[in-house]
Design a protein around this nucleic acid. Structure first.
Lengths: 189, 189
DNA sequence: CGGCACATTGATACCGATCAATCGGGGTGG
DNA sequence: CCACCCCGATTGATCGGTATCAATGTGCCG
Protein backbone atom coordinates (compact mmCIF):
# COMPACT_ATOMS: atom_id res chain seq x y z
CA UNK A 1 0.00 0.00 0.00
CA UNK A 2 1.25 3.46 -0.92
CA UNK A 3 0.67 6.89 0.50
CA UNK A 4 1.56 10.09 -1.31
CA UNK A 5 3.53 12.38 0.97
CA UNK A 6 4.56 15.07 -1.52
CA UNK A 7 3.66 15.78 -5.11
CA UNK A 8 0.76 14.75 -7.30
CA UNK A 9 -0.24 11.49 -8.94
CA UNK A 10 -3.25 10.17 -10.79
CA UNK A 11 -5.19 7.06 -11.59
CA UNK A 12 -5.67 6.63 -15.32
CA UNK A 13 -6.62 4.23 -18.03
CA UNK A 14 -5.56 4.08 -21.67
CA UNK A 15 -8.18 3.01 -24.19
CA UNK A 16 -7.54 0.84 -27.25
CA UNK A 17 -7.65 3.93 -29.48
CA UNK A 18 -4.89 5.52 -27.43
CA UNK A 19 -7.00 8.03 -25.55
CA UNK A 20 -6.21 8.51 -21.89
CA UNK A 21 -8.77 9.12 -19.18
CA UNK A 22 -7.69 10.21 -15.73
CA UNK A 23 -10.07 9.01 -13.05
CA UNK A 24 -8.64 10.58 -9.92
CA UNK A 25 -5.96 12.90 -8.67
CA UNK A 26 -3.88 11.87 -5.68
CA UNK A 27 -2.59 14.66 -3.48
CA UNK A 28 -0.39 14.51 -0.38
CA UNK A 29 -2.12 12.37 2.21
CA UNK A 30 -4.01 10.29 -0.30
CA UNK A 31 -3.53 6.55 -0.25
CA UNK A 32 -3.61 4.18 -3.17
CA UNK A 33 -4.79 0.65 -3.05
CA UNK A 34 -5.48 -0.38 0.42
CA UNK A 35 -6.66 -3.44 -1.31
CA UNK A 36 -4.65 -4.36 -4.34
CA UNK A 37 -3.89 -7.66 -2.74
CA UNK A 38 -7.52 -8.66 -2.58
CA UNK A 39 -7.99 -8.19 -6.26
CA UNK A 40 -6.69 -10.17 -9.12
CA UNK A 41 -5.40 -7.38 -11.30
CA UNK A 42 -5.31 -3.66 -11.34
CA UNK A 43 -7.79 -2.41 -13.89
CA UNK A 44 -6.00 0.89 -14.23
CA UNK A 45 -2.62 2.53 -13.85
CA UNK A 46 -1.22 4.95 -11.34
CA UNK A 47 1.32 7.52 -12.35
CA UNK A 48 3.17 10.38 -10.72
CA UNK A 49 2.47 13.75 -12.31
CA UNK A 50 5.29 15.57 -10.56
CA UNK A 51 8.32 14.34 -8.76
CA UNK A 52 6.79 12.81 -5.68
CA UNK A 53 7.60 11.35 -2.30
CA UNK A 54 5.71 8.19 -1.56
CA UNK A 55 5.54 6.02 1.54
CA UNK A 56 5.13 2.27 1.35
CA UNK A 57 3.43 0.31 4.08
CA UNK A 58 3.34 -3.47 3.99
CA UNK A 59 0.09 -5.31 4.10
CA UNK A 60 1.00 -6.84 7.44
CA UNK A 61 2.01 -3.60 9.10
CA UNK A 62 -1.16 -1.96 7.90
CA UNK A 63 -3.27 -4.79 9.21
CA UNK A 64 -1.58 -4.63 12.60
CA UNK A 65 -1.83 -0.87 12.73
CA UNK A 66 -5.51 -0.87 12.01
CA UNK A 67 -6.23 -3.53 14.58
CA UNK A 68 -4.25 -1.74 17.25
CA UNK A 69 -5.74 1.68 16.46
CA UNK A 70 -9.40 1.51 15.55
CA UNK A 71 -9.39 5.25 15.01
CA UNK A 72 -6.91 4.89 12.22
CA UNK A 73 -8.96 2.13 10.67
CA UNK A 74 -12.04 4.32 10.83
CA UNK A 75 -10.18 7.25 9.31
CA UNK A 76 -8.92 5.15 6.42
CA UNK A 77 -12.38 3.83 5.80
CA UNK A 78 -13.88 7.27 5.91
CA UNK A 79 -11.23 8.58 3.51
CA UNK A 80 -12.25 5.88 1.11
CA UNK A 81 -15.86 7.00 1.35
CA UNK A 82 -14.83 10.51 0.47
CA UNK A 83 -12.96 9.17 -2.52
CA UNK A 84 -16.11 7.42 -3.65
CA UNK A 85 -18.04 10.65 -3.30
CA UNK A 86 -15.45 12.35 -5.46
CA UNK A 87 -15.80 9.68 -8.10
CA UNK A 88 -19.56 10.10 -8.13
CA UNK A 89 -19.11 13.84 -8.50
CA UNK A 90 -16.84 13.24 -11.46
CA UNK A 91 -19.46 11.06 -13.10
CA UNK A 92 -22.01 13.83 -12.66
CA UNK A 93 -19.60 16.37 -14.12
CA UNK A 94 -18.76 14.33 -17.16
CA UNK A 95 -22.34 13.43 -17.81
CA UNK A 96 -24.26 16.60 -17.28
CA UNK A 97 -22.00 19.61 -17.04
CA UNK A 98 -20.77 21.80 -19.87
CA UNK A 99 -17.06 22.17 -20.36
CA UNK A 100 -16.80 25.43 -18.44
CA UNK A 101 -18.83 24.02 -15.58
CA UNK A 102 -16.63 20.92 -15.52
CA UNK A 103 -13.43 22.92 -15.33
CA UNK A 104 -14.84 25.16 -12.61
CA UNK A 105 -16.05 22.15 -10.66
CA UNK A 106 -12.71 20.41 -10.78
CA UNK A 107 -10.88 23.52 -9.63
CA UNK A 108 -13.35 23.93 -6.77
CA UNK A 109 -12.73 20.35 -5.72
CA UNK A 110 -8.97 20.63 -5.92
CA UNK A 111 -8.94 23.97 -4.15
CA UNK A 112 -10.96 22.67 -1.22
CA UNK A 113 -8.92 19.50 -1.00
CA UNK A 114 -5.73 21.54 -1.05
CA UNK A 115 -7.10 23.83 1.62
CA UNK A 116 -8.04 20.82 3.71
CA UNK A 117 -4.41 19.72 3.84
CA UNK A 118 -2.97 23.18 4.32
CA UNK A 119 -1.60 23.60 0.83
CA UNK A 120 -3.22 26.92 -0.02
CA UNK A 121 -1.91 30.42 0.45
CA UNK A 122 -4.85 32.75 0.64
CA UNK A 123 -6.71 32.21 -2.59
CA UNK A 124 -3.83 30.59 -4.40
CA UNK A 125 -2.53 27.07 -4.56
CA UNK A 126 -0.01 25.09 -6.56
CA UNK A 127 -1.51 23.10 -9.41
CA UNK A 128 1.37 21.45 -11.23
CA UNK A 129 -0.77 20.00 -14.00
CA UNK A 130 -0.40 20.73 -17.69
CA UNK A 131 -3.48 21.61 -19.67
CA UNK A 132 -3.14 18.28 -21.40
CA UNK A 133 -3.45 16.47 -18.08
CA UNK A 134 -6.47 18.53 -17.13
CA UNK A 135 -8.01 17.70 -20.49
CA UNK A 136 -7.50 13.98 -19.95
CA UNK A 137 -9.13 14.27 -16.55
CA UNK A 138 -12.13 16.19 -17.83
CA UNK A 139 -12.71 14.29 -21.04
CA UNK A 140 -11.93 17.21 -23.28
CA UNK A 141 -9.20 18.53 -25.54
CA UNK A 142 -6.19 20.52 -24.42
CA UNK A 143 -7.11 23.13 -27.00
CA UNK A 144 -10.56 23.54 -25.61
CA UNK A 145 -9.37 23.58 -22.01
CA UNK A 146 -7.25 26.51 -22.98
CA UNK A 147 -10.21 28.45 -24.32
CA UNK A 148 -12.28 27.66 -21.25
CA UNK A 149 -9.50 28.84 -18.94
CA UNK A 150 -9.36 32.07 -20.88
CA UNK A 151 -13.08 32.53 -20.44
CA UNK A 152 -12.86 31.87 -16.70
CA UNK A 153 -10.04 34.39 -16.47
CA UNK A 154 -12.02 37.03 -18.36
CA UNK A 155 -15.04 36.37 -16.14
CA UNK A 156 -12.85 37.14 -13.17
CA UNK A 157 -13.49 33.78 -11.54
CA UNK A 158 -10.01 32.27 -11.52
CA UNK A 159 -6.71 32.39 -13.26
CA UNK A 160 -4.40 29.49 -13.98
CA UNK A 161 -0.82 29.91 -14.92
CA UNK A 162 2.71 28.81 -14.29
CA UNK A 163 1.78 25.81 -12.15
CA UNK A 164 -0.55 27.55 -9.77
CA UNK A 165 -4.12 28.78 -9.61
CA UNK A 166 -5.46 32.01 -8.21
CA UNK A 167 -9.09 31.89 -7.13
CA UNK A 168 -10.23 35.41 -7.89
CA UNK A 169 -13.87 34.99 -6.95
CA UNK A 170 -14.68 31.75 -5.18
CA UNK A 171 -18.39 32.48 -5.01
CA UNK A 172 -18.55 33.01 -8.74
CA UNK A 173 -16.53 29.88 -9.40
CA UNK A 174 -18.84 27.84 -7.19
CA UNK A 175 -21.84 29.32 -8.91
CA UNK A 176 -20.50 28.53 -12.36
CA UNK A 177 -19.67 24.98 -11.32
CA UNK A 178 -22.93 24.33 -9.53
CA UNK A 179 -20.65 23.09 -6.81
CA UNK A 180 -22.14 21.42 -3.75
CA UNK A 181 -19.34 21.07 -1.24
CA UNK A 182 -21.35 18.65 0.82
CA UNK A 183 -19.53 15.64 -0.54
CA UNK A 184 -16.14 16.96 0.47
CA UNK A 185 -17.05 18.45 3.82
CA UNK A 186 -17.37 14.96 5.08
CA UNK A 187 -13.68 15.06 5.37
CA UNK A 188 -14.18 17.33 8.34
CA UNK A 189 -16.27 14.98 10.44
CA UNK B 1 -28.27 -0.55 5.51
CA UNK B 2 -30.31 -1.81 2.56
CA UNK B 3 -29.92 -4.71 0.19
CA UNK B 4 -31.84 -5.05 -3.05
CA UNK B 5 -33.40 -8.50 -3.29
CA UNK B 6 -35.57 -8.03 -6.37
CA UNK B 7 -35.92 -5.27 -8.93
CA UNK B 8 -33.70 -2.43 -9.97
CA UNK B 9 -32.69 0.84 -8.32
CA UNK B 10 -30.19 3.59 -9.00
CA UNK B 11 -28.07 6.23 -7.37
CA UNK B 12 -28.67 9.63 -8.90
CA UNK B 13 -28.18 13.32 -8.46
CA UNK B 14 -30.24 16.24 -9.71
CA UNK B 15 -28.35 19.35 -10.80
CA UNK B 16 -29.49 22.93 -10.22
CA UNK B 17 -30.58 23.16 -13.87
CA UNK B 18 -32.84 20.17 -13.39
CA UNK B 19 -30.73 17.62 -15.24
CA UNK B 20 -30.45 14.19 -13.69
CA UNK B 21 -27.35 12.06 -13.69
CA UNK B 22 -27.52 8.42 -12.67
CA UNK B 23 -24.26 7.24 -11.12
CA UNK B 24 -24.94 3.56 -10.55
CA UNK B 25 -27.48 0.84 -11.08
CA UNK B 26 -28.35 -1.45 -8.21
CA UNK B 27 -29.38 -4.97 -9.11
CA UNK B 28 -30.49 -7.84 -6.88
CA UNK B 29 -27.75 -8.57 -4.40
CA UNK B 30 -26.36 -5.07 -4.42
CA UNK B 31 -26.15 -3.21 -1.14
CA UNK B 32 -26.55 0.48 -0.60
CA UNK B 33 -24.83 2.45 2.05
CA UNK B 34 -22.94 0.24 4.30
CA UNK B 35 -21.81 3.49 5.68
CA UNK B 36 -24.43 6.17 5.63
CA UNK B 37 -24.11 6.43 9.34
CA UNK B 38 -20.50 7.41 9.20
CA UNK B 39 -21.20 10.32 6.96
CA UNK B 40 -22.95 13.51 7.67
CA UNK B 41 -25.29 13.64 4.73
CA UNK B 42 -26.04 11.69 1.64
CA UNK B 43 -24.67 13.58 -1.34
CA UNK B 44 -27.05 11.83 -3.71
CA UNK B 45 -30.39 10.07 -3.86
CA UNK B 46 -31.36 6.45 -4.30
CA UNK B 47 -34.48 5.50 -6.14
CA UNK B 48 -36.23 2.32 -7.20
CA UNK B 49 -36.62 1.99 -10.96
CA UNK B 50 -39.05 -0.91 -10.80
CA UNK B 51 -41.15 -2.26 -8.01
CA UNK B 52 -38.52 -3.76 -5.78
CA UNK B 53 -38.03 -5.93 -2.74
CA UNK B 54 -35.49 -4.54 -0.34
CA UNK B 55 -34.04 -5.94 2.88
CA UNK B 56 -33.07 -3.73 5.76
CA UNK B 57 -30.30 -4.66 8.15
CA UNK B 58 -29.60 -2.59 11.21
CA UNK B 59 -26.19 -1.15 11.81
CA UNK B 60 -25.79 -3.27 14.92
CA UNK B 61 -26.79 -6.55 13.31
CA UNK B 62 -24.47 -5.88 10.43
CA UNK B 63 -21.61 -5.13 12.76
CA UNK B 64 -22.21 -8.30 14.72
CA UNK B 65 -22.59 -10.37 11.58
CA UNK B 66 -19.36 -9.12 10.14
CA UNK B 67 -17.45 -9.74 13.33
CA UNK B 68 -18.80 -13.23 13.70
CA UNK B 69 -18.23 -14.15 10.06
CA UNK B 70 -15.04 -12.68 8.67
CA UNK B 71 -15.83 -14.22 5.30
CA UNK B 72 -18.95 -12.11 5.03
CA UNK B 73 -17.01 -9.02 5.99
CA UNK B 74 -14.44 -9.80 3.33
CA UNK B 75 -17.15 -10.39 0.74
CA UNK B 76 -18.83 -7.09 1.49
CA UNK B 77 -15.54 -5.31 1.26
CA UNK B 78 -14.69 -6.96 -1.98
CA UNK B 79 -18.11 -6.10 -3.39
CA UNK B 80 -17.42 -2.50 -2.58
CA UNK B 81 -14.15 -2.67 -4.47
CA UNK B 82 -15.99 -3.97 -7.49
CA UNK B 83 -18.41 -1.09 -7.22
CA UNK B 84 -15.50 1.30 -7.25
CA UNK B 85 -14.13 -0.37 -10.33
CA UNK B 86 -17.49 0.07 -11.99
CA UNK B 87 -17.51 3.77 -11.11
CA UNK B 88 -14.07 4.20 -12.61
CA UNK B 89 -15.23 2.44 -15.75
CA UNK B 90 -18.16 4.84 -15.96
CA UNK B 91 -15.81 7.80 -15.70
CA UNK B 92 -13.76 6.40 -18.55
CA UNK B 93 -16.88 5.86 -20.63
CA UNK B 94 -18.25 9.32 -20.11
CA UNK B 95 -14.92 10.95 -20.75
CA UNK B 96 -13.51 9.17 -23.72
CA UNK B 97 -16.06 6.98 -25.42
CA UNK B 98 -18.43 7.94 -28.22
CA UNK B 99 -22.14 7.53 -27.63
CA UNK B 100 -22.37 4.16 -29.35
CA UNK B 101 -19.36 2.88 -27.46
CA UNK B 102 -20.88 4.10 -24.19
CA UNK B 103 -24.15 2.33 -24.78
CA UNK B 104 -22.41 -0.87 -25.81
CA UNK B 105 -20.17 -0.69 -22.76
CA UNK B 106 -23.04 -0.23 -20.35
CA UNK B 107 -24.94 -3.14 -21.85
CA UNK B 108 -21.83 -5.31 -21.59
CA UNK B 109 -21.49 -4.40 -17.94
CA UNK B 110 -25.12 -5.03 -17.12
CA UNK B 111 -25.18 -8.28 -19.07
CA UNK B 112 -22.19 -9.68 -17.24
CA UNK B 113 -23.50 -8.53 -13.88
CA UNK B 114 -26.86 -10.11 -14.64
CA UNK B 115 -25.16 -13.31 -15.69
CA UNK B 116 -23.15 -13.30 -12.50
CA UNK B 117 -26.32 -13.45 -10.44
CA UNK B 118 -28.12 -15.91 -12.66
CA UNK B 119 -30.53 -13.48 -14.22
CA UNK B 120 -29.82 -14.25 -17.86
CA UNK B 121 -31.52 -16.74 -20.16
CA UNK B 122 -29.07 -17.61 -22.89
CA UNK B 123 -28.25 -14.34 -24.53
CA UNK B 124 -31.21 -12.46 -23.16
CA UNK B 125 -31.87 -10.67 -19.90
CA UNK B 126 -34.50 -8.39 -18.44
CA UNK B 127 -33.62 -4.72 -18.56
CA UNK B 128 -36.60 -2.81 -17.17
CA UNK B 129 -35.16 0.62 -17.92
CA UNK B 130 -36.75 3.24 -20.13
CA UNK B 131 -34.60 4.95 -22.72
CA UNK B 132 -34.85 8.09 -20.66
CA UNK B 133 -33.28 6.33 -17.69
CA UNK B 134 -30.50 4.97 -19.88
CA UNK B 135 -29.93 8.47 -21.22
CA UNK B 136 -29.60 9.89 -17.72
CA UNK B 137 -27.10 7.19 -16.87
CA UNK B 138 -24.99 7.75 -19.96
CA UNK B 139 -25.08 11.53 -20.06
CA UNK B 140 -26.98 11.70 -23.31
CA UNK B 141 -30.44 12.42 -24.64
CA UNK B 142 -33.27 9.91 -24.86
CA UNK B 143 -33.65 10.83 -28.52
CA UNK B 144 -30.06 10.05 -29.25
CA UNK B 145 -30.09 6.82 -27.23
CA UNK B 146 -32.88 5.73 -29.48
CA UNK B 147 -30.84 6.32 -32.61
CA UNK B 148 -27.84 4.53 -31.14
CA UNK B 149 -29.96 1.53 -30.21
CA UNK B 150 -31.22 1.40 -33.75
CA UNK B 151 -27.69 1.42 -35.05
CA UNK B 152 -26.65 -1.38 -32.69
CA UNK B 153 -29.66 -3.37 -33.84
CA UNK B 154 -28.81 -2.86 -37.49
CA UNK B 155 -25.21 -3.84 -36.82
CA UNK B 156 -26.49 -7.10 -35.41
CA UNK B 157 -24.82 -6.57 -32.06
CA UNK B 158 -27.81 -6.38 -29.74
CA UNK B 159 -31.47 -5.55 -29.66
CA UNK B 160 -33.36 -3.82 -26.87
CA UNK B 161 -37.10 -3.87 -26.60
CA UNK B 162 -40.01 -4.46 -24.35
CA UNK B 163 -38.00 -4.45 -21.14
CA UNK B 164 -35.37 -6.94 -22.17
CA UNK B 165 -32.19 -7.12 -24.18
CA UNK B 166 -31.05 -9.77 -26.60
CA UNK B 167 -27.30 -9.97 -27.10
CA UNK B 168 -27.07 -11.01 -30.71
CA UNK B 169 -23.29 -10.95 -31.03
CA UNK B 170 -21.45 -10.55 -27.76
CA UNK B 171 -18.04 -10.47 -29.40
CA UNK B 172 -19.11 -7.62 -31.64
CA UNK B 173 -20.65 -5.76 -28.73
CA UNK B 174 -17.47 -6.11 -26.70
CA UNK B 175 -15.42 -4.95 -29.64
CA UNK B 176 -17.59 -1.88 -30.20
CA UNK B 177 -17.46 -1.02 -26.51
CA UNK B 178 -13.76 -1.60 -26.12
CA UNK B 179 -14.86 -3.60 -23.12
CA UNK B 180 -12.25 -5.00 -20.76
CA UNK B 181 -14.05 -7.37 -18.46
CA UNK B 182 -11.14 -7.46 -16.09
CA UNK B 183 -12.73 -5.04 -13.68
CA UNK B 184 -15.82 -7.18 -13.28
CA UNK B 185 -14.19 -10.57 -13.26
CA UNK B 186 -12.91 -9.71 -9.89
CA UNK B 187 -16.32 -10.63 -8.72
CA UNK B 188 -15.33 -14.22 -9.33
CA UNK B 189 -12.30 -14.35 -7.10
C1' DC C 1 21.82 29.07 -29.58
C1' DG C 2 18.73 25.50 -30.61
C1' DG C 3 15.22 22.44 -29.45
C1' DC C 4 11.22 20.87 -27.25
C1' DA C 5 7.15 20.82 -24.67
C1' DC C 6 3.36 23.42 -23.59
C1' DA C 7 0.23 27.39 -24.41
C1' DT C 8 -2.49 30.08 -27.53
C1' DT C 9 -5.34 31.31 -31.41
C1' DG C 10 -7.95 30.69 -35.84
C1' DA C 11 -10.78 27.97 -39.27
C1' DT C 12 -13.58 24.18 -40.09
C1' DA C 13 -15.97 19.63 -39.34
C1' DC C 14 -18.93 16.71 -36.88
C1' DC C 15 -21.34 14.57 -33.08
C1' DG C 16 -25.01 14.85 -30.27
C1' DA C 17 -28.53 18.30 -28.34
C1' DT C 18 -32.64 20.51 -29.23
C1' DC C 19 -37.11 21.33 -31.21
C1' DA C 20 -41.03 19.32 -33.20
C1' DA C 21 -44.19 15.92 -34.84
C1' DT C 22 -46.04 11.29 -35.08
C1' DC C 23 -46.76 6.74 -33.48
C1' DG C 24 -48.00 2.89 -30.39
C1' DG C 25 -49.56 0.53 -26.40
C1' DG C 26 -51.45 0.02 -21.97
C1' DG C 27 -54.29 1.82 -18.41
C1' DT C 28 -58.47 4.54 -17.05
C1' DG C 29 -62.94 6.43 -16.96
C1' DG C 30 -67.39 6.72 -18.93
C1' DC D 1 -66.51 -2.42 -24.24
C1' DC D 2 -64.87 1.46 -26.21
C1' DA D 3 -62.85 6.08 -26.39
C1' DC D 4 -59.55 8.66 -24.51
C1' DC D 5 -55.23 9.84 -22.72
C1' DC D 6 -50.66 9.75 -21.46
C1' DC D 7 -46.10 8.09 -21.46
C1' DG D 8 -42.45 6.23 -23.92
C1' DA D 9 -40.53 5.20 -28.55
C1' DT D 10 -39.42 6.78 -33.06
C1' DT D 11 -38.13 9.86 -36.78
C1' DG D 12 -36.88 14.30 -39.12
C1' DA D 13 -34.72 19.03 -39.32
C1' DT D 14 -31.76 22.24 -37.43
C1' DC D 15 -28.54 24.25 -33.97
C1' DG D 16 -24.57 24.53 -31.14
C1' DG D 17 -20.64 23.01 -28.48
C1' DT D 18 -16.29 20.60 -28.85
C1' DA D 19 -13.14 18.16 -31.54
C1' DT D 20 -9.97 18.48 -35.08
C1' DC D 21 -6.49 20.46 -37.97
C1' DA D 22 -3.11 23.85 -38.43
C1' DA D 23 -0.03 27.52 -37.34
C1' DT D 24 2.38 30.50 -34.19
C1' DG D 25 4.05 32.02 -29.77
C1' DT D 26 6.68 31.35 -25.39
C1' DG D 27 9.55 29.77 -21.75
C1' DC D 28 12.75 26.40 -20.10
C1' DC D 29 16.66 23.40 -20.43
C1' DG D 30 20.67 21.48 -22.45
Amino acid sequence: MFIVLEGWACRYKILPNGARQIMAFLMPGDACDLHIKLLAEMDHGIQALTSALVARVSQGDMQALMQRHPNIAAAMYSAQLVDEGIMRAWIVSMGRRSSIERVAHLICELYLRARGIGLTYDDEFALPLSQLVLADALGMTAVHINRVLKELRLEGAMSLGRGSVVICDLAKLIQIAGFDENYLHRRLR
